[in-house]
Design a protein around this nucleic acid. Sequence first.
DNA 1: TCGTACCTTTACCAAATGGTAAAAAACACG
DNA 2: CGTGTTTTTTACCATTTGGTAAAGGTACGA
Lengths: 206, 206
Amino acid sequence: MAQTAAKKPSRIQLRNRRRIMDAALEVFSQHGYRGATLDQIAEGAGMSKPNLIYYFDGKEAIHVALLNALMTEWLAPLQDMNPGGEPLDEILTYVRRKMEMSRLYPRESRLFANEILQGAPRMGPHLVSGLKPLFDEKAALIGRWMEDGRLAKSDPQQLILSIWAITQHYADFDAQIRALIPDEAAGWDAANAHVERIFRELLTAN
Amino acid sequence: MAQTAAKKPSRIQLRNRRRIMDAALEVFSQHGYRGATLDQIAEGAGMSKPNLIYYFDGKEAIHVALLNALMTEWLAPLQDMNPGGEPLDEILTYVRRKMEMSRLYPRESRLFANEILQGAPRMGPHLVSGLKPLFDEKAALIGRWMEDGRLAKSDPQQLILSIWAITQHYADFDAQIRALIPDEAAGWDAANAHVERIFRELLTAN
DNA sequence: TCGTACCTTTACCAAATGGTAAAAAACACG
DNA sequence: CGTGTTTTTTACCATTTGGTAAAGGTACGA
């Protein structure tokens, strides 16, 4: 049972698992859970299907492993929002980092979007146990900043949602955006400027 | 060939096609294209699978029919943005109508999101031929309003994108939102207020 | 009421898909 | 080397799934 991994993982194991996760991210993010096939993932990972199964208990196990790994990295920018910092800076920095993630890691964003779109069937608990505490903590922090008059008042929870909505949109709806704005040149610059402007105006309203 | 529909569709045909589209919307929006099965749709429509195929040429034909129907209704609010109206009102009305659509027709929003997420494989042409002209027209309109000093200046294309991002997020990421903000009571009121505030601040910035 | 066109069901099918069994190959290491 | 363990391959399999063939019902105008 390579999966239980109570022992030390061998070099080969490490390499192949990484390959699998990589290929799986590609396939799952592009086709969704049910649209992805083990054959596609196996081909992407450069190994046979039974060999996949040797490293992961099955299709669902791969997907869950991906989501788990994703969750951790994904939350870092929010986690880094510093209660001791300058409120506007902290939030705009968060916004910028989210934009950067959408630009650099669109597959991860789409994997997540796919899962949520379908009702988070393999992630519901994770949302509540992993994301919600952080969400509540940071919403409370922002709320305090607003109370202290360091930011224009608005609904902190809604604020976070709208940051997610706008920033992730650039990754998730990339196909649409490219169809509507074919000019790729200043694409990300215009997007970054606009998004920053939105939240700056909102948070510094008189 | 019931599908070519060069004749008058009978009562039964009308009724059954509507049933199928309804069931298909439910299934496709929840599971994505490949995750949906004809059996599920057939069951939802209350008929046998071969009977489905009698009314539509196949799985893909149903999906395409859905997307086509969706496109038309979906564009109405943007189409209604009136060049003769008061700019801020026109845009905020558009925002409100989009929020209303997310609240009332989340399945349609998710169907669309699913298709875009996967690269718009069955919709690419439609985006360019149907959506892009309208997008360009309205972006130009908003641009003129800004030039005339009737709205705070920003990037009109990005503005429209951000309206879509935020409003559709409430439908597409509903599962996440409900996990994070279980209090359903003032959910839509808070969302509506926040979203309106965002765009009001942006468009009336000094 | 009869015929015809429309609608529905029953019985299938080929391909795809997630997964298994077991033998063969590669490897680690004393 | 030789031997026990890890990794990979080959050959399958049961189920699911999109779709078809063809016969049986049903509505409805003449």
